[in-house]
Design a protein around this nucleic acid. Structure first.
Lengths: 211, 211
DNA sequence: TTATGTGAACCGGTTCACAGCT
DNA sequence: AGCTGTGAACCGGTTCACATAA
């Protein structure tokens, strides 16, 4: 199975989102050029990305928006049900648990864990916060079949939590803590780092003013 | 002025964070290999990235952790005070306004705006939520000198807000809404997209199980 | 004629190899 | 001897050019 670049994966998500907008507008057929324009990406790039997975269009005509969206969902794994555990019920955890986009794409939080005794038992959305422990993690993974751990704890705890998550048997991690996690090749990791995003902007603003 | 890749900018942020850890441990000198190991990046990459901005090390010895951190802060623009406006006081906005990392790097929220009348006047951290309007934006930008707009509103509003942000004169945008923003070359943009991060993981988990 | 699908060319970012300092 | 700094080589991702199909 030939390797797909991270950049391609990211763009597939973008295409899917644009297609969903198109479908909402009741448009049935789209060209790669139209998808490209909405995505601010070149049309050849769109076709090349899709070509790694098959040929979904009709020459001279374009793509069926619905069919292509369906294919992209399958490619991205969104046709399956995913179970995730949220670790950390702070303000960021709250924001994540409330995000509508997940359910839409079959990503469901089955539990919320936190190590702060004061929070245990409180509600967060329709979930009750449970006590964090390595054993609790293991139970989510083995009994409930959760595959994804979402780490939204302070930086100081993130490395330990990460190790316990791997121990418990999770196969995918979305990390929001501002630390670099080193993990085995077979675990999928995506890190969202707020500091990096803001520093990206300050760098560019700084540069623009220098020129 | 030669162009610096986004990848390099991202890594500079990472190096800075690792250096801060090193400084906390009272270590004075580091080699590029040590920074590289902590960052899970190759040592030649570290040196190449730094070389775009000057030579900060001592051959045969390494780098002064403090000095290099200081240089990186200057490169990333973190030696200056930045003023940002937070647009959207929902759960994500709350999480962002509470994030400690910003103040540490001289990024300050001077105002929180929201268009929901029910929220106006409420507190969010030590700020009072003000009514969102194009005029309010302009005031933040022109009177208070804010340079960065942080968009944390629902997808449906994001495009309109983005236009008004540009109109108001902001030069940098950090976007958390799940939409593609098209904007003029001279505006710095960084988008954080939760759906993309999760879909990245589902794609990889899906693939790993296929193989 | 129009728009897809794809091998080939290109380009830029990463890695290598080694010269240059301390 | 050890580690930095950097031109050159390499590699992978993007773009081009065009054959193919409706």
């Amino acid at each position: 199975m030939n390797k797909i670049s991270n950049a391609t994966i990211r763009r597939l998500s973008i295409y899917l989102r644009q297609l969903e907008e198109i479908i909402d507008e009741k448009i049935e057929t789209v060209s790669s050029a139209e998808i490209a324009k909405m995505s601010a990406i070149k049309d050849t790039q769109v076709r090349k990305d899709l070509s790694f997975f098959g040929s979904f269009g009709v020459r001279g005509r374009g793509y069926s928006a619905k069919e292509l969206a369906e294919k992209l969902k399958i490619i991205l794994g969104l046709n399956k049900e995913w179970k995730a555990v949220l670790i950390g019920a702070g303000s960021l955890g709250k924001a994540l648990s409330g995000y509508k986009g997940f359910a839409k794409h079959n990503i469901n939080f089955i539990a919320v864990l936190d190590s702060d005794p004061a929070k245990i038992g409180a509600h967060i959305g329709d979930k009750v916060i449970e006590r964090y422990s390595a054993a609790a993690l293991k139970e989510c993974c083995e009994k409930s079949g959760a595959q994804i751990a979402v780490i939204a704890v302070p930086a100081s705890e993130a490395k330990k939590v990460c190790e316990e998550v791997i121990q418990a048997g999770f196969k995918g991690i979305v990390n929001f803590a501002p630390v670099r996690l080193h993990l085995p090749e077979e675990i999928a990791l995506y890190s969202v780092d707020l500091a990096i995003s803001f520093e990206h902007i300050t760098f560019k603003l700084n540069r623009n003013s220098d020129e």
